[in-house]
Amino acid sequence: MTTAARPTPAQMPSRRPGTPAAKETPRPPAHREPWQKAILASSLPANFRFVGVALSTHADATGHIAHQPRLIGLVHNTGINARQVAVALTALRDRGFLRLSTPDGRYDTADLILTMPLGAAARAHRANNRSNAAKQTDQPTP
């Protein structure tokens, strides 16, 4: 009589069978300043962050973009090739920093909407606290 091999932790499901997976939907439009801080504190490549900050300059304080720059506007604002801007927008969308008004994925026709991914504001806040603490230790005491 043989017994079945015991499963390793790598073979175990990541959650209990039958329980629904938590949806990770980004929050509705974020405020512009926390959104910019979250972009700058992210691990995105520098040119992706640059496109994100250039996009956010078109947004008002609530994160709403009234005059959409579209793809060609971001190319003119950043000086980056259109394909590279499209890749950066795709990365921002995949990370939850950006949403398109239409699901077709065309950046030259869809409206862009700023969204804050879950946990991004907290990471930006922690990064800001670390940089402020470093600045305070560098200054001489009177």
Rank of each mutant, 00 (worst) to 15 (best):
Thr2Glu: 15
Thr2Leu: 15
Ala4Asp: 15
Thr8His: 09
Pro9Gly: 06
Arg15Thr: 05
Gly18Asn: 05
Pro20Asp: 12
Ala22Gly: 07
Lys23Arg: 08
Glu24Asp: 12
Thr25His: 13
Thr25Met: 06
Pro26Asp: 12
Pro26Trp: 09
Ala30Leu: 03
His31Pro: 01
Pro34Thr: 03
Trp35Arg: 07
Trp35Ala: 07
Gln36Glu: 11
Lys37Leu: 08
Ala38His: 01
Ile39Trp: 01
Ile39His: 00
Leu40Tyr: 01
Leu44Met: 11
Asn47Ser: 14
Phe50Gln: 13
Phe50Gly: 07
Gly52Cys: 10
Leu55Thr: 02
Thr57Asp: 15
Ala59His: 01
Ala59Arg: 05
Asp60Ala: 07
Ala61Asn: 09
Ala61Glu: 07
Ala66Val: 05
Ala66Pro: 01
His67Asp: 15
Leu71Ala: 00
Leu71Ser: 04
Gly73Tyr: 03
Leu74Arg: 03
His76Ile: 05
Leu89Val: 02
Leu89Trp: 08
Asp94Lys: 09
Gly96Tyr: 14
Phe97Leu: 07
Phe97Asn: 00
Leu98Ala: 00
Arg99Tyr: 07
Arg99Ile: 04
Arg99Trp: 06
Arg99Met: 13
Arg99Phe: 03
Leu100Gln: 12
Thr102Phe: 11
Thr102Met: 08
Pro103Phe: 09
Pro103Asp: 13
Gly105Ala: 09
Arg106Trp: 13
Tyr107Gly: 03
Asp108Glu: 14
Asp111Glu: 06
Asp111Tyr: 02
Leu112Val: 03
Ile113Ser: 09
Leu114Met: 02
Leu118Phe: 14
Leu118Tyr: 10
Gly119Ile: 11
Ala120Lys: 04
Ala121Ser: 14
Ala127Lys: 00
Asn128Met: 13
Asn128Ala: 14
Asn132His: 14
Asn132Val: 08
Lys135Thr: 09
Thr137Arg: 12
Gln139Tyr: 14
Gln139Thr: 13
Pro140Gln: 12
Thr141Val: 13
